[in-house]
Amino acid sequence: MIDGHAWGMIFCDRDGEEPCRILLCSSGRGAESVARDASKTIDRCSHLAVQAHGQMLQRAGLLLDGAERNLHAAELCLLAADKKAEVEELLDEAETAAGEAAKLLDQAVHLDKVADALIVEVFADLPQDSLLGCPPTPQEIEVLVIGAGGQTDKAEELIEDLPQSQSVDLLRSRIEQIRTRGEGLFGRMRASGNAAISDPA
C-alpha cells in the first residue's frame, strides 16, 4: 500500500516503445515493498538487454573501423614502398641509358611525388599518436597489420555470443574481409622480402 501523491516516474527508455515505468511517491509507508517491486521491474526489463546488445555491436564496429584504418595505412605504405623501388630502378636505368635519361628522370620524379602523397595520406588516416617513420619501415608496416588483426579478434569476441541479426552478420562479413586483406598484405610483404615477423596463425 503506497500513501502520498505521485512525485515522479522512472523510465528505462523514455523514447522507446512501451518503456518500463517505476512510480515515485513523495511520501508514504511501505518503502521496502516499493523498493522490492522496483527491483523486480528492473530485473524483468527486456529493454536493458537490447541496449547492451546495441552497445556491443557499436563497440565491435568501432574496433573494426580501427582495424580497417590500420590495414588501409599498411596498404598505402606498401604501395609507397613499391613506388620508391620503381624510382630506384628508373634512376638506375637513367644512368645506363643516356638517350632516355630525361624521360626516365621525369617518370622517377612523378613516381616519387606519388609515393610522397601516399605517405601523407597514411599520416592523415592514422591517429596523431601513431609512431611511424617517414617513410615507414617494413617493421612498422607489419605492426599496423598485426594491430589490425588484434582489433579484429577483439571485435569477433564481442559479437561471438550475440544472437543472429543483420547487424551481427554485417560485422562478421567485415571481419572476414579484414582478415583476407591482412593475409594479402602479409603475402605481399613476404614476396618482397619485407616481412620481419612471421605471419600469425
Rank of each mutant, 00 (worst) to 15 (best):
T41C: 01
L24E: 01
P19Y: 02
Q58A: 13
A191K: 15
L111F: 15
I119S: 07
M189I: 14
A155C: 02
Q128G: 13
A101K: 11
S165C: 05
G28M: 07
P138I: 09
R174E: 07
A102D: 05
D112R: 13
G149L: 13
Q164T: 11
M56G: 13
V145I: 08
C20R: 10
Q128T: 15
S165Q: 09
L64C: 05
A31W: 04
G187A: 12
I175C: 06
E160N: 13
A81D: 12
A102R: 06
E176D: 09
E32Y: 04
Q128P: 13
C77V: 11
Q166K: 13
L144F: 05
I146W: 07
P136W: 04
M1N: 14
A98H: 13
R179I: 03
I10N: 06
L131Q: 11
Q139E: 10
P135N: 01
C12F: 06
N70S: 09
Q51I: 04
G99Q: 11
L91A: 11
A196M: 11
R181H: 07
V114C: 10
I159C: 01
D13R: 04
D153I: 10
A124Y: 12
T180N: 12
G8T: 01
E89Q: 06
E75F: 05
V50W: 00
L131S: 09
G149V: 04
G61W: 04
E89G: 02
M1E: 07
A115K: 01
V34H: 08
K40S: 05
Q166S: 13
L64D: 03
L170G: 08
A115R: 05
G184Q: 14
G54Y: 09
E156W: 07
F123K: 09
D65V: 12
E89H: 05
R21V: 00
E17M: 12
V145S: 03
D92I: 07
V143A: 15
L76N: 03
E86D: 15
E86W: 14
L91I: 08
A97Q: 13
R179P: 05
A201N: 13
A67D: 10
S165Y: 01
E89D: 11
M1A: 11
V109I: 12
E140H: 00
V50D: 00
E18D: 14
G16Q: 01
C12V: 04
D153A: 13
A201D: 12
Q55S: 10
D43S: 11
S198V: 09
L132Y: 03
D129Q: 14
A148W: 06
L144C: 08
A108P: 00
E89V: 09
G150T: 05
D43E: 08
K83V: 12
A38Y: 00
S165A: 02
S173D: 10
P19C: 02
A80W: 06
R188E: 11
R36P: 06
I159E: 01
V122D: 05
A74H: 09
L23K: 01
I159G: 06
G149Y: 11
L104Q: 07
R179N: 08
S192V: 08
G193V: 03
L23N: 02
C45W: 00
E157Q: 07
D37L: 07
D199R: 15
R181C: 08
E176A: 10
E17L: 12
A80I: 04
G182C: 11
L71K: 04
E121M: 12
E93H: 02
A6H: 07
D15L: 13
A108K: 06
A38Q: 00
D116Q: 11
S165R: 01
R69F: 03
M9L: 15
C134G: 14
G184N: 15
Q166T: 10
L170C: 10
